[in-house]
Amino acid sequence: MNSYAVFLRGINVGGINIKMAELKAALKARPFSAVTTLLASGNVVLASELPAAEVKSEFESCLREAFGYDAWVVVLTAARVAELVKACPYPADDAATHSYVTLSSDAAALAELYDAGTALGGVELTLLGPEAMAWLAPAGGTLDSPFSKISAKAKYKRSTTTRNLRTLVKVRDAAAGLAA
């Protein structure tokens, strides 16, 4: 049995509201077990015999069928989430900045986003691997940061989602509990 973290893009914002209890109930009919939702921002840990690509496909199909919207998720193994948290060079808690990790199901899209952010300047970016990059935003200015605006472009919608590092730590801890 494999332990996974699933990161949903764009729920509970922009008119797409999904109660975590309803999400959990919808996932019961799928080949997943030990489904746990974290926070109300679209973070799920689960166990499955399926490989990650099939977990992604099953999960997205479930969201489309149960909630009627074009859903995109990023699926990582529990071990990979732990590696990304450990590799992040930025602090989880800092009064002056917020640390974020942008996750992607498309390495080329992430590389393009990284290049765009690097060319933009004014933001500290660190590639953590082909599926993740970490970045800093000033406290209280995340949505106004030029990099945040670039990463929110429609062309990245299908393949990327961003989480605060504190959230990723919580997901790591919950996913580790499945592997134990």
Rank of each mutant, 00 (worst) to 15 (best):
M1Q: 07
S41C: 15
P146I: 01
S99K: 13
T36H: 14
S148I: 03
L103F: 13
T97W: 10
D106S: 10
A107C: 12
A40I: 08
A79H: 07
A132T: 02
L50K: 15
G14T: 12
I16N: 14
A108D: 08
W72A: 08
K153I: 02
N164A: 06
N17D: 08
T161I: 01
R80F: 14
L110K: 09
A175D: 12
S105I: 05
L8M: 14
L103T: 09
V169A: 07
K86P: 02
Y69A: 02
G68L: 10
E54L: 07
S151P: 04
L178I: 11
S61M: 04
A87T: 06
S61I: 02
M133R: 12
M20D: 01
T126I: 04
G42W: 15
S48E: 13
S61F: 02
S61A: 11
A92L: 05
T167A: 11
S41A: 14
P51A: 12
V44H: 00
L165Y: 10
I18E: 11
R64A: 11
R172I: 01
A66M: 06
A95K: 10
G141E: 11
V6I: 12
T37Q: 08
S48I: 03
V169N: 07
A52M: 12
N2A: 10
V55P: 01
L50D: 03
V35P: 00
V45Q: 00
G177L: 13
T167S: 13
D70H: 06
A5V: 07
A174S: 13
D93F: 06
C62L: 05
S3I: 04
K149C: 02
L50N: 12
V101G: 08
K24Q: 15
E65C: 04
K149W: 05
A180P: 15
T102G: 13
L165Q: 11
L178V: 11
V101N: 04
Y90F: 14
F7A: 01
T167H: 06
S99F: 04
L39W: 14
V73E: 00
L113F: 10
V123M: 04
E58C: 09
M133L: 10
P51W: 07
Y100W: 13
R30V: 00
A71W: 00
S145E: 06
A25I: 00
K157C: 08
S41V: 10
A134N: 09
R163S: 07
V171R: 02
V73G: 01
T77E: 09
A26P: 05
A179Q: 12
A5K: 00
S159G: 12
A108C: 03
G122H: 05
P138S: 06
D94Y: 02
A180L: 15
D173Q: 13
A107E: 15
T36E: 14
T162Y: 06
Y156W: 04
A96I: 03
A82M: 03
T126L: 10
S145N: 06
A40H: 14
S151K: 09
E49H: 14
G68P: 05
S104H: 09
R9E: 11
R158M: 05
L113S: 04
S57R: 10
A66D: 03
V123D: 07
A116G: 05
